[in-house]
């Protein structure tokens, strides 16, 4: 089941968020050895804010198995604050463009269909929020996988080696056609997002 959660501090989703931050710690720090901070086994940073949206997928036992973080690019992002030089012409700045970061799938389910479901859920979330484009810094392998899913990912900067792996800044459109292509490829017939948790008091109705 995939949950769409608004806000890093959403009081209605404390356990889900903790599970998500724990998965990020396991994937990015324990497995990939990224040089980033964590706190008591939870990985989060300054880009986890009340404006951030998360997709969190649970398995049948209720464990978090996949996640992705989405931030509007008209606010500070990893792109604008840390990797601005990876983008020719400066980092994207538009409320209708999301930065996708911290995409993670638990090691034990990586060969399953979770990738396709999370990709579909990301596009569904974008359509719900009126977002038309997404960008991010991706490993070139992941970029290829995204294109295989149906995304027309275009480079917006020069590739660079980060932690021994080639990465590149890229952007792609998020629309109904792309969602249909991705669903077709993964034989997903209906919506992937099953529950939406807005921040209490938020005015936006998804």
């Amino acid at each position: 089941m995939i949950h769409l959660i608004a806000g890093a501090t959403n009081p209605n989703c404390r356990e889900l968020l903790a599970g998500m931050f724990r998965l990020r710690h396991d994937v990015f720090i324990k497995e990939k050895h990224w040089n980033i901070k964590s706190y008591n086994g939870l990985e989060f940073d300054q880009f986890d804010t009340e404006e951030t949206l998360y997709l969190v997928e649970l398995d049948e036992a209720g464990a978090v198995v996949a996640t992705v973080r989405m931030n509007p690019t008209d606010r500070p992002t990893l792109f604008s604050e840390v990797f601005a030089d990876m983008c020719h012409g400066g980092p994207p700045k538009c409320p209708k463009t999301w930065e996708l970061t911290r995409g993670a799938i638990a090691q034990n389910v990586r060969k399953s269909l979770h990738f396709g479901r999370i990709e579909c859920a990301t596009i569904e979330a974008a359509l719900l929020w009126g977002v038309t484009k997404a960008c991010g810094i991706f490993g070139v392998d992941l970029l290829m996988k995204k294109m295989r899913c149906g995304l027309d990912a275009k480079p917006i900067g020069q590739p660079r080696m980060i932690d021994g792996e080639s990465h590149v800044a890229a952007e792609f459109a998020m629309n109904g056609d792309v969602l249909q292509r991705t669903r077709t490829l993964y034989r997903i017939t209906g919506p992937s997002i099953e529950q939406i948790h807005l921040m209490p008091g938020a005015r936006r109705a998804a």
Binding site: V140, M147, P155, Q158, P159, R160, S166, V168
Partner: peptide
Amino acid sequence: LDMQMIGT
């Protein structure tokens, strides 16, 4: 790096 992108 360029070849990897072009190949992709």
